[in-house]
Computed example of a mutant assay.
Amino acid sequence: MRQIGKACGHFFICSTRVRSGSAIRGFVRHRMAAQRGGPALSHGRTSAFSTCPRPRARSLPMKSTVSDLVVQRSATTARGEAAVPTRLSVARTREALLELKKATDRCRECPLGARATQAVCGEGRVRSAIMVVGEQPGDKEDVQGRPFVGPAGKLLDRALDELGWTREELYVTNAVKHFKYELRGKRRMHKTPAQREAEACHHWLQDEIDLVRPPALVALGATAARVLLGRQVAVTKERGRWHGDPSGRPVLVTLHPSALLRGDPRQRDEAWQAWLKDLGIALPRKAKD
């Protein structure tokens, strides 16, 4: 159950599903100090988290951006009326996603944030019917700060083009926001995120989903599928089908494009066509102009 805690004229969306982060707590203290004398809610002490049972304050720091952000609750009446979710305007959603990126950059809830160049959040159409979720940024994504700009991203773009779609029509992101790697000489080689690292990052992905509010999602690979569906997923057995996430939103599971790049070259054409068939379930082929 979400609660909104209001402190110092700012709104913080809190969730009992995630843990608090020291980076966000520091941000909250900074904001409170900057507005000395503002209202404070407390359970015996001044805290921006006082209306929540010790969760992490979930992103969204600027009042002008988030006074109605993600979930705007109706006034609670004596009859106990339920909160009414509303969708932000496109402009406010973009502002909120920028603030989310800044908050994610400061995240140190797992070791990955301290080693990465920057957080890599999603990009694309904020009213997209489909959100595509990959695993984590790669080396090029970590440097450029954009998702899917490396070899796997080029393969994704090629698939979208063949289906008659463009990346600009979708919202593309990753389940884990920081690059996990191991050094081999001077090269930073991709390393699969551990489950605890993906879990620590889950609330950032959930923030993106809450803001973009896509009707459906595409999970590329096992990490994305596990995070979105909340369970272990055998991608090769469950690919090419719709599954329901815990909220009931449909999620299509398929391979990550990097799996095709690593695959047997003799089976590459067959794997490519099978992957296109999977993607075509969520992204029906359109006639090209």
Score class of each variant (00 low, 15 high):
T192H: 08
T93C: 15
T223I: 12
L229P: 03
V90Y: 05
W272L: 02
Q273G: 05
S20N: 08
G37F: 05
P151W: 03
P265Y: 03
V126K: 03
R188W: 08
S89K: 14
W272P: 00
R187Y: 10
W242R: 13
L260D: 10
V218T: 03
Q273P: 00
G122L: 08
L41D: 03
S67T: 15
K180Y: 00
A159C: 13
K186E: 13
R268F: 14
L156I: 01
G37K: 05
G26I: 01
G44A: 12
S258V: 02
T173F: 08
E135A: 11
L88D: 10
H243Y: 05
L155A: 03
D207S: 07
T51Y: 07
A175R: 09
S47C: 04
R36Q: 15
L283P: 07
A274G: 02
R19I: 11
M1T: 14
L276Y: 03
R106N: 08
T76K: 08
A78M: 12
G280V: 01
E95K: 06
A75P: 15
S15N: 12
T166C: 14
V176Q: 02
T236Y: 13
A40Y: 09
K63Q: 14
V84F: 08
L60Y: 10
P246H: 06
E168I: 04
D142I: 07
T16C: 01
K186Y: 07
P39A: 15
R94D: 12
T46C: 06
D161C: 06
E168W: 07
R146E: 03
S74I: 07
C201W: 08
V176K: 01
G145Q: 00
Y181N: 00
A216M: 09
V71I: 14
K288Q: 12
D157R: 10
H178T: 01
H43K: 13
R45C: 12
A175S: 04
S15A: 09
L69K: 09
R125P: 03
D264S: 13
G38M: 11
P215D: 02
W204G: 05
S59G: 10
R188M: 02
G185A: 04
R106C: 09
Q72C: 15
R19M: 12
R106H: 06
V227A: 08
W204D: 00
A57D: 09
K288V: 15
G138K: 07
R54T: 01
G9N: 13
E169P: 02
L88M: 15
R167Y: 09
T65A: 15
A159V: 14
Q136F: 05
Q232A: 13
V120M: 04
K177C: 00
G26Y: 05
L260I: 02
V251M: 07
T254F: 09
A271G: 11
H243C: 00
L69W: 11
L156N: 00
